[in-house]
Amino acid sequence: MTELLQQLINGLALGSILALIALGYTMVYGILRFINFAHGDLFMLGAFAGFYISPAVAAVLPGPSLGSGLVVLGLAMLICAVLGVVIERVAYRPLRRRPKLTVLITAIGISLFLENTGQLVFGATPKKFPEIIPVYPVLKFGGLSITSSQLIVLGVTLLLLVALRHIVLKTRMGMAMRALAFNPEAAALMGINTDWIVSFTFGLGSALAAAAGILFAIVYPSIDPLMGILPGLKAFVAAVLGGIGNLPGAALGGILIGVTETLVAGYLSSTYRDAIAFGILIVILLVKPSGLLGKKEIEKV
């Protein structure tokens, strides 16, 4: 029982991180109908941004403390938001009217570019992520152990989800995003500046990916330039599982994937853990391609 509870908590922490990445996928898909393959790499860049700015932050705010940790988190999110906007502007925007496949291939290219440039600039060997928040067991009960880092992951994720919900539902920007996702032509006719909204969406998604990267590095403090590939793919699966284009679905999908993966790794076989997400993907696409919370799309003929 304790072990199950422990696995659930571990799974929940991993799942929240996947959920944050999945939200970026789903937002971009909702608006542009394309899978931003490079999204997982912004997760990696987020972690590296944290790695390089944390000494500077530590010089001003002697840490590790919750405050300094949050400052690092915020700065990394900001940096990646800018990167996300730049990538969209340079690589994707010129292709907006081109076939989807062209954009997909470009996204794969960008992804490879970020990974390989990362290996050159940051080095291919894993780096130890500094302790930016104090990590200690908060609760020890029998075999059960909950650490402060896990609580931070859950807390920050929850906070970001609430903030995102507010942005999407309550602000003008969010309203425009929803309008654009619903009907791009009509939105443009209503005077919504498409380019600006797309930029904003990329910035927002990238910031969430960066947050996920920092949180991931807090829990598993070893980072390398290829660390974004698998979480990125798994988060994509999470977005599909929840129903791509659907924000609550992405969050739900992330949690489900995280928990399933942790449970399977814990109880069945850990060597198969990376294949689980893909197995889920294939099953969901065969059984219910619109995902758990998604709506079925009808192709117009």
Binding site: L101, L104, L281
Partner: peptide, 22 residues
Amino acid sequence: LRLRGDYLAIVTLGFGEIIRVI
């Protein structure tokens, strides 16, 4: 039978990875 475009790309990627893991 069902998928096209980017979805298919991801599924085939997934199959490839599953084969590798096996």
